[in-house]
Design a protein around this nucleic acid. Structure first.
Length: 599
RNA sequence: GGGGUGGUAGCUCAAUUGGUUAGAGCACUCCCCUGUCACGGGAGAGGUUGCGGGUUCGAGCCCCGUUCACCCCGCCA
């Protein structure tokens, strides 16, 4: 018999059917029992009266895979309007282990951390599924809106040779030896370039942001709904487009995902024919007038103001949407079009929805000369954005566009408290691809020494380990080891001046570190990390720092002279103990990038 | 990076002023139950109170350290 999906059962009343799915719940009343089976369409009730059949389910926990054949009977008792009777049950995959989460109650009531730790299981709960069907609807609605306006869908690259716009930080991909490759933090440049090809383009794709924010509305990876449009008459065409897109999305979701919205208790957003549009300065004024809180000196909106103006708008203008416009020039990237009336302001707008920014957009500078001048003023290396500039050099119409955060829109439509609930598998400061990041940072000199010795033994690498008097400097070490200064390996912990990221540089004892050479590789200015920070972060004292930064989370760069040495010696975490081994083994086991880093 | 709150059973939470055997609901096991739908009733199992120190006759509770989480801020979509 062919499988029938739960949703198709109302069409098969009176017939024998075969259904397949997961055991979702079992309510045993004695002589009559109700088995709830879950398939991709939803839940089906199976009425089990035969004791032989119910006994087959002994020891089968929620999640067991079942096939059931039986007769479809119409009933008032289920939402579906039908149920299966006279069943014959087969347990295809019996699951004996009890689910860590309770999936068959109305709500799970979990801590966010538990929800994300047990994500794979949690997603089986009907309400969790509903979130992601609605999210599908957001994407469908966006795509439909863009198609209606004759936009072409593109897929821009996510591994980029250079940073696409300043501001936010990029994830660097170390794979490409020496070359700077980053994960895309936005399709910005690509969608603009494609305006020179298709006039109107949009994209639904992931973006990556290496920002150290830890809030309920940020993630390191999220899905961006992007659009860019050429031949605009005015920058307000962009605001109109943003408004059109979000309204279409909301309408589409409410037209097609009503059951899911109802399950989650989502309330339809208040939407007026025209979304209120307010300049940043006007919002500051309203906030000041209404609350007495004075943010008028602030160039940007405070999250508190975003929340307030949305509440105010809902009350006063019956709109959950507010467009905040005219962000200050200095807060926006170099390609943002400055206002003709006031060059301190830009033709840009953010869509605020229920207290959170969900869209940023605006008009772009399209005049080649002006764009080059602005990029220069912002300190952007023109060579690195050559392709981008070519698109303007050879003809770009007046254009603009926007980016919208998928998870934020989903969360706000439903009323979720945290965007992470609207992401299948979260990547943020604490997890990657949903998996919690284990902090395997080894702390303290003795622990680090133990880790080094254990690792060398495990890999059967030849080394000698000696104890000696305390040697805070390379000279002291060379003297007690009775070896040349050049044999010593100095391990320095450096910090990026912008990012604060620590890296390790290993140079010979008789040479000086060449910061400039390393700065070129890592792409930012470096300084020596402060001794108290080193103590605090790694539990190490200056002079005791071993070259094994990889064991405590640091990328290691090694001067070629160290790697070439037949024998290198270093203090292995403590000032009173040294290890000697070959330079090539050291380079290999520290997973170091070797180069000319000494002078 | 800064501020706040918290960590007790698989999950969500109690536990009076520091007091003797750390409780409840859900989940789990067994028994009863013919229309449940968050089924109901009965019985049971389940704990190194995040970790390490300290104060005390006595610590889930007080102190110090540490770690993890959540919320808010900075930044942003």
């Amino acid at each position: 018999m062919e499988r029938t999906l739960s949703t198709q059962l109302p069409k098969s009343v009176g017939k024998q059917v075969l259904i397949k799915g997961w055991l979702h719940n079992l309510r045993e009343l004695g002589k009559i029992n109700f088995l709830i089976l879950r398939d991709r369409g939803g839940l089906v009730q199976v009425v089990v009266e035969d004791k032989k059949e119910i006994d087959k389910l002994k020891g089968a926990q929620v999640g067991s895979i079942l096939t059931v054949t039986g007769e479809v009977k119409s009933t008032q008792n289920t939402e579906l309007g039908v149920e299966i009777t006279q069943p014959e049950i087969e347990v295809v995959n019996k699951i004996s282990e009890v689910s860590p989460l309770v999936l068959n109650k109305e709500d799970m009531e979990l801590d966010l951390d538990t929800l994300l730790d047990e994500r794979v299981i949690a997603l089986r709960h009907p309400k969790q599924q509903a979130i992601f069907r609605i999210q599908q609807g957001v994407k469908e609605g966006f795509r439909k809106a863009m198609k209606t306006k004759e936009f072409t869908e593109i897929s821009s690259p996510k591994l980029l040779a250079e940073a696409s716009e300043g501001g936010t930080n990029f994830f660097k991909v170390p794979y490409f030896d020496g070359a700077n490759v980053f994960l895309a933090q936005s399709p910005q440049f690509y969608k603009q370039m494609m305006v020179g090809v298709f006039e109107r383009v949009f994209e639904i794709g992931p973006v990556f942001r290496a920002e150290k924010h830890n809030t309920s509305r940020h993630m390191s990876e999220y899905v961006s709904l992007d659009a860019e449009m050429g031949f605009i008459d005015s920058w307000e065409d962009i605001l109109d487009l943003i408004e059109y897109a979000i309204k279409e999305i909301i309408q589409y979701v409410w037209d097609n995902y009503e059951a899911d919205l109802r399950l989650l208790g989502a309330t339809k957003p208040l939407i007026e024919a025209k979304v209120p549009r307010l300049k940043i300065t006007e919002i500051h004024d309203i906030v000041f007038k209404e609350t007495g809180k004075d943010f008028r000196a602030e160039p940007d909106l405070e999250p508190e103001e975003e929340r307030f103006i949305c509440e105010y708008s809902a009350k006063e203008w019956n709109s959950d949407l507010v467009l905040a416009t005219h962000f200050p020039t200095k807060k926006r990237p170099f390609y943002t079009y400055p206002s003709d009336e006031n060059p301190e302001e830009t033709y840009s707008g953010d869509m605020l929805f229920r207290g959170v920014e969900i869209v940023t957009g605006g008009r772009r500078i399209t005049d080649y000369t002006q764009l080059v001048a602005n990029a220069t003023k912002w300190g952007v290396d023109l060579e690195k954005i050559r392709d981008y500039l070519q698109a303007f050099k050879f003809g770009m119409p007046a254009e603009g566009g926007f980016g919208m955060g998928l998870e934020r829109v989903t969360a706000k439509i439903i009323g979720l408290h945290n965007v992470k609930e609207a992401s299948l598998f979260v990547t943020d400061l604490k997890r990657a691809g949903g998996t919690k990041l284990a902090k395997r940072v080894i702390n303290g000199g003795a622990n680090i020494r133990d880790a080094i010795v254990a690792m060398l033994k495990e890999r059967e690498i030849k080394f000698t380990h000696m104890e000696h008097e305390e040697t805070p400097t390379s000279e002291d070490s060379a003297r007690v080891r009775g070896a040349a200064l050049s044999e010593g390996a100095k391990a320095l912990i450096l910090a990026g001046k912008q990012s604060g990221t620590n890296v390790m540089l290993v140079v010979p004892g008789d040479k000086k570190a060449d910061f400039k050479a390393l700065e070129e590789v890592v792409g930012e200015k470096l300084e020596m990390e402060k001794p108290d920070k080193i103590q605090q972060k790694f539990g190490l004292q200056i002079g005791g720092v071993p070259p094994y930064g990889n064991l405590f989370g640091l990328k290691v760069y090694m001067d070629e002279a160290v790697a070439a040495n037949k024998v290198v010696s270093f203090n292995c975490g403590l000032r009173t103990e040294s290890i000697s081994m070959s330079g090539s083994d050291l380079a290999e086991t520290t997973e170091a990038s070797v180069g000319n880093f000494s002078a």
